[in-house]
Design a protein around this nucleic acid. Structure first.
Lengths: 238, 238
DNA sequence: TCGTGATAATCGTCATACAATCAGCCTGTT
DNA sequence: AACAGGCTGATTGTATGACGATTATCACGA
C-alpha cells in the first residue's frame, strides 16, 4: 500500500507561522521578555499582520507568549513559583501517563517504547545536542501513545512547551545526562514488569529530579537578576 | 480605600467576543456539530471578521470548537472515548487540587471554601438552576485558590469547559443533586481534618461519580444517534 | 530635578478585496 | 435512470490599507 497522496500539505500558512514562531522561541532566538513587534515579525515571515495576529493569539493560548494590552506580545517570562507549578503539574501528568501505559498499552506500543528508549540511549552517548531533543521527544511520544488518553496528551504538549522554555538554560547540565538516562531506564523497566505503581513513581521521580536541577539554576539566576539594577518595569495595574 | 478607577473595562472587544461565544455554546445556543458561519456570527455580534477569526482561533485552542480547513468552525463534538478521557484527566487534576489544598491553603482560604460550600448547600435546596452553576463554580474557585498552583488552575479551566459541554445533557439529572452535595461534603470534611489523602480520594470519587452518570447518558444517546439517520440542513436563501 | 506637553511608535479594530476551495445543481451522455 | 463532468454560489484563507486609541519617548520650561 504505497502512499499515493498528492502533497496537499498546504498546512494553512497560519499553522506554518505558529510552528515557525514556536520553534524560534524554543531555540532561543527570541528570549523570555523580548518584545515581538508585529510589523517586524510580519516582514520577517513575510505574512500579513492579519494572519500573524491570529498566530499570536494561538501562541498566547498555549502560554508561550503573553500579549500585554496596547504594548504587544512578549515572550512569556515565568516566575520561580510558576516554574515550580509547571514542574509540579508535569509530574502529576507524567505519573498518570506512566500508570496508564502499563494498564493499557498494546504489545506494539510497548515494543515502540523500548525501541525509542534504545535509540535514546544511543543518542545520549553521542555528542549532538540536536539529536537528543528529537529522540527524547519521540520517547515521550511513544509513552503518550500507550496511555490512550488524547486529552492527557494535549495537556502534556502544553506543559512540555513551557518546560522547553524553562530548559533554555537548564540544558547541557554536566552529569545530568547519564542520570537522566538512568531515570528513564527505571521507567522502561517498571513498564516491562507491568508494575503500574513503580512506573508511575519512576515517572514522577524523573520529573522531580529535573525540577530540582531547573529550580536551583533558576533561583541562582533570579538572585543575580535582583542584584543587578534592572530597568524599572511599568506597573501592571491590578 | 474606595475604588476610584475609571471604568476602563475596555476588556479588548476580542475578549468580549470570546466570552460571548463561549457562553453561547455553554448555554446550548449552539450545539455540538453546529456550523459557525463567520459572516453570520459577525453580524450577530456586530464585529469585524478579522476580530471574529482571532476569537475563533482562541476558542479552538481551548478545545470548544474545531476549525475544519476550508469548511469553517463547528462546535466541538466529543466521542464517547474522548469524554472518558476528559473525565479521567479531570479526576487526576481535581485529586491533585484537593491534596494541594490541604497541604498549602491558608486559614483564610480554608474559611472561604467553607463559606462557598455553605452557600452551595443552600442553593441546591432552592430551585433555580442558574444559581447552582454560579455557586458551584465559586466553590471550585475557592478550591483552586487554595491549591496555589496557577498552571493547575489553568488546566482545570480548560477541562471544566469541556465538561460543561458534555454536561449539556447530563444536567438536571434527578437525585444526582443531593448525591453531589454529599460528595462535596466529604471533600470539605476531609479538608477540615487536614487529611490530604482523604481529600484527594474524595475529589476523585466525586469526579468519577459524575463521569459514570455522564457516560451512561452518553452511550444511550450515542446508540440512539447511530440508529437515527441524520438529516441534512437545507439552504434558506431561495 | 521634576513635571508637562508634543511627537512617534505601536496596537486594536475595521472595511474591503480576491483567490482557493467546497457544496449543490445542471446537464449531457451512455 | 445513472453517472461523469462542469458550472455556480457560498464560504474560507490571506492580504492590504486605513484610522483612532494608547503607550512610550523626549525635549523643554519652571
Amino acid at each position: 500500500m504505497t502512499n499515493l497522496r498528492v502533497i496537499r500539505s498546504m498546512v494553512s500558512l497560519k499553522k506554518q507561522v505558529v510552528e515557525s514562531l514556536r520553534a524560534a522561541i524554543f531555540e532561543g532566538r527570541f528570549k523570555p521578555g523580548d518584545r515581538l513587534v508585529e510589523r517586524e515579525i510580519c516582514e520577517l515571515l513575510d505574512v500579513s499582520r492579519t494572519l500573524l495576529r491570529e498566530a499570536l493569539s494561538q501562541l498566547e493560548a498555549e502560554g508561550i507568549i503573553r500579549i500585554i494590552p496596547h504594548r504587544g506580545p512578549i515572550v512569556a517570562v515565568y516566575t520561580v513559583e510558576e516554574a515550580r507549578a509547571i514542574y509540579e503539574l508535569r509530574a502529576a501528568l507524567e505519573e498518570m501517563a506512566g500508570r496508564l501505559f502499563v494498564e493499557r498499552a498494546t504489545d506494539k506500543e510497548r515494543k515502540d517504547l523500548e525501541v525509542a528508549f534504545a535509540e535514546l540511549k544511543l543518542a545520549y552517548k553521542g555528542r549532538q545536542q540536536r539529536n537528543r531533543l528529537a529522540v527524547k521527544s519521540s520517547f515521550y511520544a511513544a509513552l503518550c501513545a500507550g496511555a490512550h488518553n488524547p486529552v492527557l496528551v494535549e495537556m502534556l504538549r502544553l506543559i512540555h512547551g513551557r518546560v522547553t522554555m524553562l530548559r533554555a538554560k537548564t540544558l547541557a547540565q554536566p552529569g545530568r545526562l547519564s542520570l537522566s538516562v538512568a531515570e528513564l531506564k527505571d521507567i522502561v523497566q517498571a513498564i516491562k514488569r507491568r508494575d503500574a505503581d513503580a512506573a508511575a513513581a519512576a515517572c514522577r521521580r524523573h520529573v522531580m529530579n529535573a525540577s530540582a536541577v531547573a529550580s536551583s539554576l533558576m533561583s541562582d539566576e533570579e538572585s543575580e537578576a535582583s542584584a543587578t539594577p534592572k530597568r524599572s518595569r511599568a506597573a501592571q495595574g491590578r
